[in-house]
């Protein structure tokens, strides 16, 4: 059964007519052509598909489009303010915290969600918060450094 679903996507009001059971991951990637959100496992194990829903990091492969009705969805494409990168994006680039880059959008979105919840995380908090995002290239320690730096930057910016 198709339904009309309205939500906010990267700051814009959008509306789709789709079966409510469709996965947000695929709706983003095909319907909206927002391909920055990646498929890695399809079953919630890897975090490559992470987006923000009402500011909270969420796995879009385990979320249906019906569930986001009335909510605010942000993907990696909606994070920068025009040319200005989000501090977490900037920190990833500054720390060379990526190799192949396939896990990167999910890592960044998860980190932003983490910092929304815990603006002043300890290293341990960051490890715990990032634990279920997988990276096969092994950029982990640089990712942790980047998130720490971004947290500081965001604190000082305020």
């Amino acid at each position: 059964m198709k339904a009309k679903i309205e939500f906010t996507l990267n700051g814009k009001d959008v509306s789709v007519e789709l079966e409510e059971s469709k996965k947000l991951l695929w709706v983003l990637r095909t319907h909206f052509n927002l391909t920055g959100t990646k498929y890695g496992c399809g079953e919630g194990y890897c975090g490559a598909c992470t987006v923000l829903i009402n500011n909270s990091a969420t796995r879009s492969c385990a979320t249906t489009i019906g569930e986001v009705a009335g909510k605010n969805v942000i993907t990696i494409e909606g994070l920068a303010q025009g040319e200005k990168l989000h501090p977490v994006q900037q920190a990833f680039a500054d720390h060379d915290a990526l190799q192949c880059g396939y896990c990167t959008p999910g890592m960044i979105m998860n980190a932003v969600g983490l910092l929304n919840d815990q603006p002043k995380p300890s290293r341990e908090d960051i490890i715990l918060g990032m634990e279920d995002n997988l990276c096969r290239c092994g950029a982990h320690n640089r990712i942790l450094d980047a998130i720490e730096a971004a947290a500081n930057e965001m604190q000082n910016g305020k």
Binding site: L34, T35, G36, I76, E77, L79, A93, D96, Y102
Partner: peptide, 21 residues
């Protein structure tokens, strides 16, 4: 020297095979 492709990769603009349309 830092890698050259970071900007594309942190903004989600880098296109992998599955991103072709």
């Amino acid at each position: 020297k830092f890698r050259a492709d970071s900007l594309e990769k942190v903004t989600g603009k880098a296109k992998y095979s599955g991103d072709m349309r």
